[in-house]
């Protein structure tokens, strides 16, 4: 029963898939993006990048939801968060996911970076991807720090103050960094506006395309693994694809073709 249903469903959807493929190449792109060989050793360690991407997506989604209630003013920032937590339905859950996934994100990125370093995946030709990754870590760190200040409570305020003070110690540009981040020479409404703009618009706008570049370079060079392991696995993958295509063209069962090739 099940194979017949599967075949019928496939047949019914095939025209739509063909139509979409002809116009967007989405199906072949999806296949190319999803069916990529990965090293056989340390399988789970290679999921840390995907986990990072999942957590960042979660940040974007919950962040957008939080924006529906958050007020970026010194008078109302904390009150609006309090409202989200205590009055809005599921507000505590949404903010909790945003808060905890941000914490996990920093930890998972640390592990991802450690795996990349220990497995030597930063070596040629993947150096550029390592650099993009380092940039991404910086952006995520600033995002985490600026998110802290958006609460505008004692903890967040003084954390941001300490951050600005650290920035003020920068050689030559220290004063410029401080006044830029403060929006003046004292902490006030302009400071919160700036933190908000940085956290909600500037950094996500920088993060999204860099994630794209990171993934593109990953697919271009593949996951790190030995050349032998790769060539063997790639050859097997190509052979399987060829056999499948031939079996479809010739209308011969795949098993028979495989047997013939072996003989």
């Amino acid at each position: 029963m099940y194979p017949r249903m599967k075949a019928r469903t496939k047949a019914a959807l095939q025209p739509f898939a063909d139509w979409l493929e002809e116009r967007t190449s989405l199906i072949s792109f999806g296949q190319k993006a999803l069916y990529e060989p990965v090293p056989t050793r340390g399988r789970w360690l290679y999921t840390l990048g995907s986990a990072t991407l999942f957590l960042i997506t979660l940040q974007f989604l919950t962040g957008i939801l939080l924006l529906f209630y958050y007020a970026p003013t010194t008078d109302h920032a904390w009150d609006s968060i309090y409202y989200t937590m205590h009055e809005a339905y599921f507000g505590r859950l949404i903010r909790g996911i945003h808060f905890w996934s941000a914490n996990f994100l920093v930890a998972v990125i640390g592990l991802h970076m450690m795996r990349t370093f220990i497995s030597g995946s930063y070596k040629a030709p993947r150096e550029l991807n390592w650099l993009v990754g380092v940039l991404l870590i910086f952006i995520v760190a600033i995002m985490a720090f600026s998110g802290y200040a958006l609460r505008w409570d004692q903890e967040g305020f003084y954390a941001w103050e300490v951050g600005i003070k650290i920035g003020s110690y920068s050689p030559v540009v220290g004063d410029w960094v401080s006044t830029f981040l403060l929006g003046g020479d004292t902490a006030g409404p302009a400071t919160l506006s700036r933190v908000f703009a940085i956290h909600v618009w500037l950094l996500p706008a920088a993060l999204a395309p860099l994630i794209g570049v990171h993934l593109f370079l990953l697919r271009l060079h593949g996951q790190f693994g030995s050349a032998f392991e790769y060539s063997e696995r790639l050859a097997k993958l190509r052979k399987t694809r060829q056999v499948r295509e031939l079996s479809e063209e010739e209308d011969v069962p795949q098993e028979e073709l495989e047997k013939e090739l072996e003989e």
């Binding site: 004063d175 410029w176 006044t179 830029f180 403060l182 929006g183 003046g184 020479d185 004292t186 006030g188 302009a190």
Partner: peptide, 17 residues
């Protein structure tokens, strides 16, 4: 535009207070 508070402070000597 982004640096205007810094420019006003550094070159114009303006303070928020």
């Amino acid at each position: 535009y982004l640096l205007s508070p810094s420019i006003k402070h550094q070159f114009g000597g303006r303070s928020d207070v």
